[in-house]
Design a protein around this nucleic acid. Sequence first.
RNA 1: GGCGAGGUAGCUCAGCUGGUUAGAGCGCACGACUCAUAAUCGUGAGGUCGAGAGUUCAAGUCUCUCCCUCGCCA
Length: 576
Amino acid sequence: MARILITSALPYINGVKHLGNLAGSMLPADVYARFQRAMGHDVLYICATDEHGTPAELAAAAADMDVRAYCDEQHEIQKRAGDGFALSYDYFGRTSNEPNIVLTQHFAHVLEEKGLIEERLEHQVFSIDDDRFLPDRYVEGTCPHCDFERARGDQCDNCGRLLEPTDLKEPYSKISGSKNLEVRETKHLHLLQTKVEPQIRAWVDAATEWPSLAKSIAYKWLDEGLRDRSITRDLKWGVPVTRDGQPREGFENKVFYVWFDAPIGYIGATVEWAEANGGAGSRDWESWWRTDKGAGDVTYVQFMGKDNVAFHTVSFPATILGSEEPWKTVDKLKAFNWLTWYGGKFSTSEQRGVFMDQALDLLPGDYWRWYLTANAPEGADSAFTWEHFQSLINSDLANVLGNFVNRITRYTASKFDGRVPAAGEPGEAEAWIADELGQRLPAIVAHMEAMEFRKAAAEVRAVWAAGNEYLTRAEPWVKYKSDVDAAAVGVRTGLNLVALFGILAQPFIPEAAGRILDAMGVPQDRRSWQFGDIAGLLDALPHGHAITPPPVLFAKIEDDQVAEWTQRFGGAEPDA
RNA sequence: GGCGAGGUAGCUCAGCUGGUUAGAGCGCACGACUCAUAAUCGUGAGGUCGAGAGUUCAAGUCUCUCCCUCGCCA
């Protein structure tokens, strides 16, 4: 039994995420976690909300709430949305919780001891009316090069030139619009990434199980040269900057930069998990994260969107490797491209795209899980369209899987007293389906191991379709007229296929899979992915065992629903 | 502007280090079947692989130029 640590990129706290975020990290991580559990491995799947930083403060202010109260509320909302999609986190923590604060301060302390942190004086724009320092992109003004009036402090969107906030003419605060600004001196801690660069490069060189997308992004950053990076900010909301357990002199009103403490949150959330579970034995967080405390045999797998790759392959490793402590680092990394909305961006303001909570109002989580997995943006960006969604769900879930379950269970109820028939011997049709399964089941496992979810889903669908083909070949309803025993073999095999399909479906559509398996009376300990004995799989249900035809598993998506949703959330004609 | 990804059947996408008649699902046409959510099963029609040039015995797959789309710019 292998030990597998899985994390998905931490969703930011300011509001429910859209389907693209779900599809690019949390969902595939969950599919993988469920798969590995079904394979019998010891899996720890950790996620958390990323709560610090200016956007959280501003969102809280906009909601007229205290930041912590705002985060409390948003964390619960995101947790609920995750539950709605059956995301099976072992723990869904928070970067603002105590363990992450302790760990963040610990890393800063160790890095400073190693000579990798130093104080530097900076000049930053301070907004007197907002009573805060403004991050570069929150300062706007007129571009000194092209006179564009809404250039940002870091760059002009019109002429594309990189800027410093102090370059802007007529600068104003993007937060309040106030022009009452001044430049103040402020001291910050800088992480000397330039000194760690050789270690990071060697570590990236040694990584064998990263996809090319991840490696090329990492090398791109390394080749451009790492920069020493400020890891503190003039904010109230964040991890306090300390020294020897006391507030650090001159840093009383500063906190660590959100990108410094957020990835440490993977570890912090694991500590939260351990504390919630007693913290003993394998429930010990260090046995997952410290190679000197038993994490040597852990395989660590990270899931993220491509925008996060650099932070996970370069920035966070700078923290970890720079500490020179025996922390577990990522082994396998799965990066996703974007799920687009009809080829363009999801956009809240333009009402283009669906958010996680809205999606659940329309349809159960399984529908979305299947679409987003079967259509995952793995090789390239992939487009969501209502029409594609409708056809995929209706075809794969309603017609191929749902109808298969329905047709064979109902036939059993009407002709075989709702029981698994014992009579008859397997023949040609049974040999055919056994051969199909013998080829396709290993392929599915291989695709899952390789984290090729799109291909895995296609293969799972092919197995479901093979079930229908099997019934066409076995045609028990024809045989029933002349030879009830011959029909019984087909029914028995069909029922066992239903159970197998439920087992196969678990990582992808866990709720529906559970209903199928419950209806077939498959006990919990018989639901794992053990496909070695095909003949056994086709005769696994006890003879005479009663089954219940489940209600229709997947309702079809109707054209008028698509029309309504297109109207509400945007679709093919954004201007219409 | 810089950087990145991509342009393959009507649609959404596979096609590894170049090598038999370029694949899948959906959609479409025709046929079969009737246990089933008018579901299912079978057969078939659809592509000069963005454009041009080059390397090679051989290019969707390598090189160059161009066109177009999308994204990112901490």
